[in-house]
Write a protein that binds this DNA or RNA. Structure first.
Lengths: 213, 213
DNA sequence: CGTTAATTTGACCAAATGGTCAGGATTTTA
DNA sequence: TAAAATCCTGACCATTTGGTCAAATTAACG
């Protein structure tokens, strides 16, 4: 009995679409992550989702539409992490939380991060509007917060932009380059303990690096 | 008079191959950077090199061969940066030099960095052997050096691997994600001055972060 | 039930793809 | 200058690609 068959059993037609879209999106995410938009093929995605290609096109009429959906989901996850920066006015706590959250996302959703990386490398044909609006606004507001910390003498004077880039790159590296890290780790993925150490090290170096602790 | 025509003038048949291969490789690098191996097409590369596709296939019989050549060139650049880590036993100077060199490479050769990123994201189908031999050996030897610094109390105890990953990610981010950075910078690339600041910030935060200064 | 609506899929298509090739142009060499 | 070697390219080809469609299957509902 397949997942879909089980879905049919449990809730039938109503949930079959929901269930299948989820399966397709997951398959699509991993194929887009690995090959980028152009390099990905709808038959690869269909194969990975274990459905005929024609069925895939029943749910998502075009490759574009499917890709768009995948990217939207990723952006929502990104926004989740963004929230963890709020909530707190203390630089140590705010940055610790943010870095932790981003590291967790890299571990739990590496494919999403890779799709994002591919998008940016291709000069963001699909998400350019996000970058210019949501991302830009969020960044500017965070830059202000960090600048205030600097003005208050709570952290050293560094350009907040480059601090953010450092956090983004360091954390996302564990998703985008996990294959390289795995290879250097003797061919096995980082254990939970190793990953915790990586996380601690990242937080430690960055916080100490800006004189926050 | 085209570049090639000039090449013919200056040295003729002997250098024409050399000259054209360079043009093709440069075009190929930028297309592979943008679309990955699968997503790139030989006609796109030919178009960007301003030659007929058949001519491209005269110099590089297959897309694979062309890609291999591009990746080899990039790896050589990588090795260049690797050298700058040697020469010196002082952590501050060695790391400063290394980070500087990597930042310079990101600025001067962003396409190469992107091809590398694509390769890793694709699980290194072409360069896996490099990762397991050259990169692994280099990394292990650098890890030993860093560990010695720690044992000597010259820097704080951090896992050297994660320190290296941080350096790689931070520096390469300025190449791989330069479009995002540009967008957040108001649509214009970082000026030389801004780039210098980014470089200084990266060095400052990392060195202070590990207690080296 | 039986009718309607949603889902599934094999067969198909036009366009794009990596690559070939014959024959022409240019340069080198004897 | 002749012929050998290298370089160039329009036309071509088999395969792959994104996407369609009609017909079949399954579920929903009165």
């Amino acid at each position: 009995m397949t997942k879909v068959e089980r879905a049919i059993k449990s809730n039938s037609k109503a949930s079959i679409r929901q269930e299948k879209e989820k399966i397709i999106l997951k398959a699509a995410e991993s194929v887009f992550a690995e090959y980028g938009f152009r390099g990905a093929t709808t038959s690869m995605i269909a194969e990975r989702a274990k459905i005929p290609k024609a069925n895939l096109h029943y749910y998502f009429p075009t490759k574009q539409a499917l890709y768009r959906q995948v990217v939207d989901n990723i952006f929502n996850i990104w926004l989740q992490a963004a929230d963890s920066f709020d909530d707190c006015d203390d630089p140590v706590e705010a940055l610790t939380r943010y870095i932790e959250k981003k590291m967790d996302i890299s571990r739990e959703n590496p494919m999403g991060s890779k799709v994002w990386a591919n998008e940016i490398i291709r000069r963001a044909p699909v998400i350019q509007d996000y970058l210019e609006t949501t991302l830009k606004d969020w960044t500017e507001s965070r830059v202000s917060i960090i600048q205030r910390w600097i003005d208050q003498g709570r952290i050293n004077p560094v350009d907040p932009h480059y601090l953010l880039y450092m956090i983004w790159s360091t954390t996302q590296h564990y998703a985008d380059f996990n294959h390289q890290i795995e290879t250097l780790n003797g061919g096995t993925p980082l254990s939970d303990k190793q990953y915790q150490t990586a996380k601690d090290n990242a937080i430690e170096i960055i916080l100490k690096g800006i004189g926050a602790r």
